[in-house]
Design a protein around this nucleic acid. Structure first.
Lengths: 394, 394
DNA sequence: CTGAAAGCGCTTACAG
DNA sequence: CTGAAAGCGCTTACAG
């Protein structure tokens, strides 16, 4: 994945890969066995450079001349500690490089300092961006963040995933943008600290489970209205999968058309991938009446554009295409993609903040701004072609 | 991010977002406090639906009429357990839905059942794909997988990241495709179980630290040779950042040019993003002698193509561009991107397998196939333009 | 092959 | 405001 430098080594050799493997084997066996017990010999030789036994709360206590409970209070921000002792303890912590042991903390029943994110996916832009926001926010507050993919919405798998993810002393974030996510949300037992990122504000199943969401409905409406405003008679919609029966993006698109008195064509149901967008695009390209297409995400839009291109339809001269999400790539497509920007990273950050407020009442007051969707106008949408307009030099 | 259904709800209201927030507040306070101690009342009423105290090793022991140590032996695959008792215990585990508590396990000094991935990034394709492979493999073997981003290669940050990630009872995977990754690799204390994904087979710093890598060098050479074979006089190179001074991709490109007796132009150093590719592309587009460009990744290639397009140079008629990685999108670009496929997901899986062999000697024998890079020929590269070829109807 | 002991590093109540 | 106790759920040795 990476490249650098200006040196050129010895010539590539077919044996290199195999050598790499052997090397690995060798290294494997060369790995030092986990530092074992301390040998009881009376030798006072230089201590081996083994992984030092980590410094504990008791070491800190000794160094600060207090009991270890006091140390516990300090690291947990307990109010009733004299300022001077607190400072002593803090100094000792710094000196010794003390880090509380997460496992011990969790075992003893302290507040959660770790989240695991339950998500159907870790590679699609929206998920990736959300994960990034969660990781950032988690890291900033000393939380360990874990990831667990839930591949299907089947009850056994969902149950299993939740059971494994729910560790005492741990918290959960579930990304519920599809069926699997919604099932997971519903399967989290009450009492487990959690927050969710949802497509649609949830009802009963969300009880005790705070969530964040982006106003997809309004965003989709904005995009549809923009296309209508360009002069298109109507706007077709290519849909991503959904979490419920009340899809926000589709609802927003539909409402905008209806409000404008435009005909509402049957939406094309697709998946998440550019390939499924391509397939949807082939269908749409066969219909000469299609002049504007709104897509459920940018990858779908890319696929639609590709299909249109293959069918000889030029974007945006013949057909306008608008995406959703504003992935980092869409600005560099040709034509650059007009799309709706959604701040999933910010949403992820916000979701984490919500969760943290649950786990740590002292942090509950913190509020982050609620991100607003935004239409980004670029090159892939324009006025509809004039009736019978000629074709020149594609 | 998601859309569904065919119903349209009430019209969108400006207050919706705010309502969402209030809702969240309300839910937050409604969350039940962590299930506390058992009230000592003599009531035998229906038990509240609180998060049940998780079933422990002792519960299983009681159910199976053995000591809890025996249960420990069974769940850890210890050989010296009579078959019949093993089966009893397994049955009890199944009955009670017992799951070992990871924190307790780690605290007690058992073998690692969790990995945290130290990575500079979680959104770029290569990292994302690697993470996916690791997560899959981890999940399949009951490992919890954590993610920690290391944002800079500065020693304090690197030290801190490693210190926080190294938990007793935990293992590490470091993705070392850039400087930060390499620094992290070097900073992991010996004795900590770990494996790495590296750009370049490492020397001393990797001692006791097994790694996997893809043969970027050969792959880059293949791509350069392909372009040369098309008739280009030489091939320009736009580089991604690197981990060391002996970049594999660049070295492969250079060696191929030299072997063919082609001139070796100065490589253009870029970042990871399409934007930096765009900038590099602007430089290259200004030079009419440039007819073939190899890029360190597909995002860079997209940026280069965009810059060429803006400069009026048609791909591949005027300039051929080849990428690296074969992201899921590149097939759907127009023109579809010719690129080198690298199986980062497989590499991530392999890396996890390596790590697991370290932690669990019983699993050490498992071998996964070592993925091979592959040139994927699509539309973005072709023969060089003929001298003085006319420009028609761009 | 299986049981009884000690302890991993912390955190909660409980006492002062 | 601070100390002494008990225990979270497991795993290692150690004994039989």
């Amino acid at each position: 994945m990476v490249v650098t430098g200006h040196t050129s080594g010895p010539d590539p050799d077919p044996a290199t890969v195999a050598a790499g493997e052997d090397e690995v084997r060798a290294r494997q066996t060369a790995v030092s066995p986990a530092a074992g017990g301390e040998a009881g010999s009376g030798q006072v030789a230089a201590r081996p450079a083994r992984a030092s036994r980590s410094v504990s709360i008791r070491d800190v206590a000794a160094a600060a001349s207090v009991s270890y409970q006091t140390v516990s209070r300090v690291i947990n921000g307990h109010p009733s500690v004299k300022l001077s002792t607190r400072e002593q303890v803090l100094a000792a912590i710094d000196d010794l490089g003390f880090r509380p042991n997460r496992a011990a903390r969790a075992l003893a029943g302290g507040p959660a300092h770790s989240v695991t994110v339950l998500t159907p996916n870790t590679t699609l832009y929206g998920y990736t961006a959300a994960l990034q926001g969660i990781e950032e926010a988690g890291r900033a507050t000393g939380f360990a963040v874990g990831v667990r993919v839930v591949e299907s919405a089947a009850p056994p798998e969902v149950r299993d995933a939740v059971a494994r993810a729910v560790e005492p002393g741990g918290a959960l974030i579930v990304i519920a943008y599809d069926k699997a996510g919604t099932e997971v949300l519903a399967a989290v037992p009450p009492g487990v600290p959690m927050a969710a990122m949802v497509e649609t504000p949830v009802g009963d199943e969300g009880r005790g489970k705070p969530w964040v969401w982006a106003d997809d409905r309004k965003a989709a409406g904005d995009a549809a209205r923009y296309l209508l405003g360009l002069g298109h008679r109507t706007v077709h919609y290519v849909s991503i999968p959904s979490s419920t029966d009340t899809s926000q993006r589709m609802a927003g698109w539909r409402a905008a058309l209806e409000a404008a008195g435009a005909p509402v064509p049957e939406p094309v149901q697709a998946g998440w991938s550019p390939r499924s967008g391509f397939q949807a695009g082939q269908v749409l390209a066969a219909d000469p009446g299609v002049t504007a297409v709104l897509c459920g995400n940018d990858d779908l839009a890319l696929g639609v554009i590709r299909a249109m291109h293959k069918a000889g339809r030029v974007i945006p001269r013949d057909v306008s295409v608008v995406g959703f999400d504003d992935t980092p790539l869409s600005e560099f497509y040709t034509p650059a993609l007009t799309t709706v920007r959604l701040d999933f990273t910010g949403l992820g950050r916000l979701c984490f903040t919500l969760l943290r407020g649950l786990v740590d009442p002292k942090a509950a007051g913190e509020r982050a701004p609620w991100p607003e969707p935004e239409l980004i106008v670029r090159e892939s949408a324009g006025p509809p072609p004039r009736q019978g307009g000629g074709t020149r030099c594609t």
